[in-house]
Amino acid sequence: MFEPKIDIQQALAGLRKREKGLITYEKIMSSYKNINLSEDMSFQRMFNGFYRIRRNEDWRKFYYENFEKWKNESTPTFPLILETFYRHTGRVECSFSSKMLATLCPDFPIWDSIVLDRLQLRLRGTNCETKFQNALPLYEHILQWYQEFLPTQTAKSYIAAFDDAFPQYKHFTPTKKIDFLLWASPKTK
């Protein structure tokens, strides 16, 4: 199993500089269950800003309608979310699919360019259909990495350092703490 070398002091310093992100994440997680995600524009602006969603109004309407539906029905899977958006938009929205899933189920990891870089992974494909087909096993690979990494002493030491630096966020899931540390760590060479 690949273990990313996180300079924990640099990552924590980066998170301290951007602690507003931790505060915003806390607000997202404490509010999404109690509102109508398809109608609450304040929540949508906060979520869009935090996760850098820069899509048109029709796309966002479809996104938040499905977000609300899945919040109230049952826990969706990454393949279901990804395929729903792919069939509707023609886009392979791995990152935004994972961000929705990780909000509904905080033990699931985020897929974004930073996480892929830190884990030395890449979505392969020259067209949308190939990328869609390759996305599903790649997300499974990310899930498998977290399952193997989280029980390690390295992961436990990273999580303990996060908890020491941010005791008010000890309740974040171990997956989310590692997500934040990967995000705040310097780019791999």
Results as ranks from 00 to 15, higher is better:
Pro4Trp: 04
Pro4His: 05
Lys5Phe: 12
Gln9Pro: 00
Ala11Val: 08
Leu12Pro: 02
Ala13Asn: 14
Arg16Pro: 00
Arg16Ser: 14
Lys20Ile: 13
Ile23Val: 15
Ile23Pro: 02
Ile23Cys: 03
Thr24Pro: 01
Tyr25Lys: 15
Glu26Leu: 12
Ser30Met: 07
Ser31Val: 04
Ser31Glu: 15
Tyr32Arg: 12
Leu37Trp: 02
Asp40Ile: 00
Asp40Tyr: 08
Asp40Ser: 06
Arg45Ala: 11
Arg45Asn: 10
Met46Cys: 06
Phe47Ile: 07
Phe47Met: 09
Arg52Ala: 14
Arg52Phe: 06
Arg55Leu: 12
Asn56Gly: 15
Asp58Ile: 13
Trp59Lys: 09
Trp59Asn: 14
Trp59Ile: 07
Trp59Ala: 15
Arg60Met: 15
Tyr64Thr: 01
Tyr64Val: 01
Asn66Tyr: 10
Lys71Cys: 08
Lys71Gly: 03
Asn72Met: 06
Asn72Pro: 01
Thr75Met: 12
Phe78Glu: 02
Leu82Pro: 00
Thr89Arg: 05
Gly90Pro: 08
Gly90Gln: 07
Glu93Tyr: 01
Cys94Ile: 11
Phe96Val: 03
Ser97Met: 01
Ser98Ala: 08
Leu101Ser: 03
Phe108Trp: 06
Phe108Lys: 14
Ser113Gln: 10
Val115Ser: 00
Leu119Ser: 03
Ala135Leu: 02
Leu138Gln: 07
Leu143Pro: 02
Tyr146Ser: 10
Phe149Glu: 07
Leu150Pro: 04
Thr152Pro: 08
Thr154Arg: 12
Thr154Tyr: 05
Tyr158Met: 10
Ala161Ser: 15
Phe162Tyr: 04
Phe162Cys: 07
Pro167Glu: 13
Gln168Glu: 15
Tyr169Phe: 15
Lys170Trp: 05
Lys176Cys: 04
Ile178Glu: 03
Trp183Cys: 02
Ala184Lys: 04
Ala184Trp: 00
Ser185Thr: 15
Lys187Cys: 04
